[in-house]
Design a protein around this nucleic acid. Structure first.
Length: 270
DNA sequence: AGTTCCCTGAGG
DNA sequence: CCTCAGGGAACT
């Protein structure tokens, strides 16, 4: 479900709601989202104060002390909701956090259970260390050098979290349209000028998506169930058969890595 | 670098 | 009934 802009929106929401609060209670309604044992997770988190909340790729990092944090990855269908405890518990509410002196609580809801949560030591955290650089922070030279080390289709490269962290299926398609690059194009067939343009497109699309609260296609909402608005600006994603907003030609859908890919056959020639 | 599978719900 | 869905780990 959530890519970089959606996760960033959630992180900003968490800063406004739980930053500085002390964890009073953690309830597990469904084990399995947390990979370690429920008991040890509770021992390590209850009583700790939320010192900071950050994002790394598509991960939410809830920092509890200098070196410890709760890592949350929302998978395809994970949500965090900040609501009153009297709200009826949903079938897919799996974990509930309560904070000292807080009238509301934080719930992790995830129908497909692809999401993961874990208590980690930030000094040696493979989940974060294996990720590539943040796409909004990489310099032009670093970006071109990074792409030059890769082969295969440009879309597969953009989706690979070890190369760049945070881009998923929606934003890969929107970025490639913005850059005028066909998703099937081999990365080593793209010249340097075009690669610089690709980096610029990544920055532009992700920045606008963050400004507008991310994309709500089916289920994504922020902490208070508010929808994003970037889906209104999608040029290609989910628009098979509809006219290209730039040239009018019908948007095509193909499958790459078992995922739908949308592009304009005229604006993004092979 | 490219498949297979994890899991549940929505929509045709 | 079938196919599809903002992800990614573990295989080949």
């Amino acid at each position: 479900m959530p890519e970089l802009p959606e996760v960033e929106t959630i992180v900003r929401g968490l800063r406004k709601t739980i930053l500085g609060k002390r964890i009073k209670e953690v309830k597990f309604l469904c084990p399995g989202i947390v990979k370690q044992s429920s008991v040890s997770f509770i021992c390590q988190t209850v009583g700790q104060k939320v010192k900071d909340i950050k994002r790394r790729g598509k991960n939410i990092v809830i920092c509890l002390s200098q070196d410890n944090a709760i890592l949350v990855h929302l998978g395809m269908s994970g949500h965090l909701l900040y609501l009153c405890p009297d709200r009826k518990v949903d079938k897919h509410d799996h974990i509930i956090f309560r904070f000292l002196g807080d009238v509301k609580e934080l719930r992790y809801n995830d129908p497909r259970k692809f999401g993961k949560m874990r208590f980690v030591d930030l000094k040696t955290c493979p989940d974060l260390d294996k990720l590539g650089p943040e796409p909004m922070e990489i310099s032009e030279k670093e970006f071109v050098d990074l792409m030059r080390k890769r082969k295969g289709r440009v879309k597969s490269v953009l989706l690979n979290q070890k190369v760049l962290a945070g881009i998923g299926n929606i934003y890969a398609d929107e970025v490639l349209f913005e850059a005028g690059i066909n998703p099937l194009k081999k990365i080593d067939q793209i010249n340097t000028v075009k690669l610089r343009g690709l980096r610029k497109s990544i920055g532009k699309i992700l920045a606008k998506a963050m400004r507008t609260g991310g994309s709500s296609i089916r289920t994504y909402t922020d902490l208070s169930r508010k929808m994003g608005r970037f889906q209104l600006s999608h040029k290609v994603y989910g628009r098979e058969g509809k006219p290209c907003k730039r040239c009018g030609v019908k948007i095509k859908r193909i499958v790459i890595n078992q995922r739908s890919s949308y592009f304009c056959p005229r604006c993004q020639k092979p």
